[in-house]
Amino acid sequence: MTKLNVLTKVLCAAALLLGSGFARAGDITAYTALEEDDVKVYLDAFAKAKPGIKVNVLRLSTGDLIARILAEKANPRHDVIWGVALTQMVDPRILEMAEPYKPAGIDQMKQQFKDPAGRWFATTGYFAGFCVNTEVLKKNNLPMPASWQDLLNPVYKGQIVMPNAASSGTGYLQVVSILQMKGEEKGWQFLKDLDKNMAQYIKSGSRPCKMAATGEFAIGVSFAFSGVKQIMEGYPIKLVIPSEGAGYEVEVSMLMKTAKNKPDSKTFFDWLLTLDAAKLYGERAEMSSVPGAKATEAILKAGLPADVSTVLYKMDFDASSKNKDRIIAEWKQKIER
């Protein structure tokens, strides 16, 4: 072994340790809250369509990701934000980092999925659903609920879990949809009545469904796709979409003013609205704004409707993000234990 050889090895090791984990030229860096397995499928397809561009992805849960983006604000490391809950993204501290961009084909998209100023657009979304464990229902001789109203039935006392609105975006989405549906006064009363049956408020949005899946509780109020996942995994879960209409959330994408590779970022955004991508949304997401997305057999079998728009409650996103601080404060005071 020569001295040079050793030196090369030492330098390589140093480069590995000190080499920055962020993008090189030609790559783009995306921060996303989309599910890990979905990200992989979308990116594999994108790599086939545009082989020259490599997308480096950091995936974190919505809350952690927003915290990271805000903390890194002095020196942002990502080019784009891809698929993060709108209610969290319309925070003025985040919107001011956006560079307006309207991807090709955005005119086909319905109004509620895009920002008039072009700062964000949403390709996919999710909505509320109950994960009901059929084994626990049978064991305790409980009826199958069909609506929010049904959950007030005293037989469910101590058998329901839902996310905590102060720590989970899904939790907030559910509270705000009930307040918008029933009006604030009746809405708060409803939440207080529901509280009598509630076993726990869970700190994450998907965990209530997992707790129902393992049989800890009969009913986990969560979002629909986490129910679909538990069903596909094999758990004795039935997915119930509340008949009053399900509150929903859209997952938005945004180009950063500070992006180091804007052209490739824009190419990536254009691709997100193509028919190729839309087909994948049909297989992977519970709702999509891009024309051409069609739900697959397996998803329909798990209990999702073919036409999602029939089950959604028409949310007022402006109001829900504007009132967020106030509603969470009130929720903490009136409902949280």
């Binding site: 809350g63 969290q88 925070d91 905590n164 102060a166 408020y201 601080d325 969470i328 949280e336 234990r337």
Partner: peptide, 21 residues
């Protein structure tokens, strides 16, 4: 912990729940 709130979960609520670092 169910609904037994402690200081550390309160940090989580503020930071990850609401982005109030």
């Amino acid at each position: 912990g169910a609904d037994y709130g402690v200081l550390a979960t309160e940090i989580y609520n503020q930071v990850s729940g609401q982005g109030r670092m």
